[in-house]
């Protein structure tokens, strides 16, 4: 679904992405992992057009992204940090997003508000967002990502800040949507979570993809039973 080629980005003098090549397959869940500062979030933001690449290209279904914005109607995004205007309520925030998308989604499909019920957010919807706890805001954040039944879901550290119950609800939702054909890109530093969710894995180190492929393939080539050990092996090999 997405093809990324020779993507490069630097912030000032610091290179963040140094020629990233990556293919994200339709209908699968791809996890981008790597140490802090490896460029995971930058890569995601470049796909969304939040950051502009210095070089390289991104193709979505064979069409190169060129700064147009309409493709974003097909994407649901859950940023890492959930901070919203303090005096708006969650209901107002959702209404704003619906209003904004209404202008571009001509044939609007029914909204997916399942997570509101599953997270039991109903009573929180009319309170100002500033009064909600960090975890609750993160739940609102998750709702916004699924709301428009996107073809592609982009999740930046989706379970951070969520309690185990909410985290399980979110993972179940991701699995359910994956079965229904959704493509997912997510970043995570929790290997257990990646093991549980992902089909494919891209290991990013110093702005380059050091491994890309199926989870099973990684475990097989490193001859390790768990993902954590497989990644550790990979990093040790890189260091050697």
């Amino acid at each position: 679904m997405i093809e990324i080629a020779e993507l490069a980005k630097r912030y000032g003098r610091r290179p963040v992405l140094q020629g990233v090549d990556l293919r994200i397959t339709r209908g699968r869940i791809t996890a981008i992992v790597g140490p802090n500062g490896a460029g995971k979030t930058t890569l995601i933001k470049t796909i969304l057009g939040l950051s502009r690449a210095d070089a390289g290209r991104i193709m979505l279904d064979g069409v190169q992204l060129d700064g147009g914005v309409d493709y974003r109607a097909r994407i649901g995004y859950m940023p890492q940090i959930a901070r919203f205007p303090e005096n708006l309520t969650a209901a107002e925030l959702l209404a704003l997003l619906k209003d904004l998308r209404a202008s571009t989604d001509r044939d609007r499909r029914a909204l997916d508000e399942e997570l509101i019920d599953r997270f039991a957010l109903g009573p929180q919807l009319d309170k100002p967002l500033r009064t909600l706890s960090g975890g609750t805001r993160q739940k609102v954040n998750a709702v916004t990502a699924f709301l428009f039944r996107p073809e592609l879901l982009v999740l930046d550290e989706p379970t951070s800040g969520l309690d185990p119950v909410a985290s399980s609800v979110l993972k179940d939702k991701i699995h359910a949507e994956r079965r229904a054909g959704l493509t997912v890109v997510l970043t995570s530093h929790l290997m257990g979570e990646v093991d549980e969710l992902a089909d494919d894995l891209a290991f990013l180190l110093d702005g380059r993809v050091r491994f890309a492929g199926a989870l099973e393939a990684l475990k097989a080539t490193t001859r390790q039973a768990t993902l954590e050990r497989a990644i550790a092996k990979l990093m040790a090999r890189e260091a050697a």
Partner: peptide, 16 residues
């Protein structure tokens, strides 16, 4: 500065 994350969220929508 306070609206930075909000700006991000809106820019991820089909908005110029």
């Amino acid at each position: 500065y306070d609206a930075r994350e909000f700006t991000e969220l809106l820019l991820a929508q089909p908005v110029r």
